[in-house]
Design a protein around this nucleic acid. Structure first.
Length: 279
DNA sequence: CCTGCTACCTGATGGC
DNA sequence: TGCCATCAGGTAGCAG
């Protein structure tokens, strides 16, 4: 559930479940999910603390504790799973037949929250202060925050010589966009992903800003209907496909001009765009 | 400081 | 069927 809208939908769903709950204990099944931190560090920081607030910055989920915080990052494939209680967790987690993959779990009075990522890219980290997390501390302005204004965005663009696509993927300028919504925003703004960020005219910067915000809002609506269901480990976001105009549509006609959507490679990753109407 | 490249992992898919 | 190559919604760490 990688990009900003998916993480925001998770956070909104998690908030009423977790806020005010005390972490009774922490289970670490796969320590790689904590790397480079270690299990004792997480257990010591989290055990017996209450979750005061559930929040998000960029693609990070923040669980703010009485003292310190936990950060969850799903990377490409991470997800959350809910269990009724500790017994159900131990019965189902990582067992051979019909088991549910779980890397780390937090046990509460009302149930258990599991963090799972078979690929082991996702991370669960514990921090005394948010500034201690270099990933979190280096994030730029969140794309759905009110600080993400056209003026601010124009200044950021003007300071970067990189191609627009790389600029949008770089979380230190604007936080929250990944490969899908970068492609989508550029398609909606009718801008060539290879253009240098600083080459945009004011009107083009405004168009891209508007496209980013509207694409993310529309995707968030999609992610909330239906809302995430952590009780079902097969749960996934439905219906995102129907809002995509460029991503993963190689060879299909552009919905604006009819030309074939092309797949090009930028910084080792796929960019989907219309070479005819994205200038 | 910036940029570009690789490594990190596992699973799904498609060609032969 | 089986085997192999390729691809995947992300980021950290490194060299230049």
């Amino acid at each position: 559930m990688p990009e900003l809208p998916e993480v925001e939908a998770v956070v909104r769903t998690l908030r009423p479940i977790l806020e005010g709950q005390r972490i009774r204990c922490v289970h670490v099944f796969h320590p790689i999910a904590l790397k480079p931190q270690r299990a004792p560090c997480l257990a010591e920081l989290a055990t017996d603390q209450c979750i005061q607030r559930v929040d998000r910055k960029g693609k990070y989920v923040l669980l703010l504790l009485d003292r310190g915080l936990l950060t969850l990052h799903f990377r490409l494939d991470g997800q959350l799973v809910w269990f009724a209680n500790g017994a159900e967790l131990l019965e189902r987690a990582n067992v051979k037949e019909n088991g549910t993959h779980v890397d780390v779990a937090f046990e509460f009075g009302k149930g258990v929250l599991g963090f799972a990522d078979r690929r082991h890219f996702g991370r669960v980290h514990a921090w005394d202060r948010w500034e201690d997390s270099s990933g979190l501390a280096s994030l730029g302005v969140d794309a759905l925050s009110k600080d993400f204004t056209v003026a601010r965005f124009r200044d950021l663009l003007a300071a970067s010589v990189r191609p627009l696509k790389d600029f949008l993927l770089d979380q230190t300028w604007v936080a929250g966009l990944g490969n899908i919504y970068s492609c989508e925003a550029l398609w909606h703004a009718r801008l060539d992903p290879r253009r240098r960020a600083k080459s945009l005219r004011p009107e083009e910067a405004r168009r891209l800003h508007k496209a980013i915000v509207s694409v993310l809002r529309r995707a968030l609506e999609c992610c909330l209907h239906p809302a995430p269901d952590f009780h079902d480990s097969q749960w996934w976001f439905q219906g995102l496909q129907k809002i995509l105009r460029a991503y993963d549509r190689e060879g299909e006609p552009c919905r604006r001009c009819g030309a074939a959507i092309r797949r090009i490679e930028q910084s080792g990753r796929s960019t989907y765009c219309c070479r005819k109407c994205q200038k």
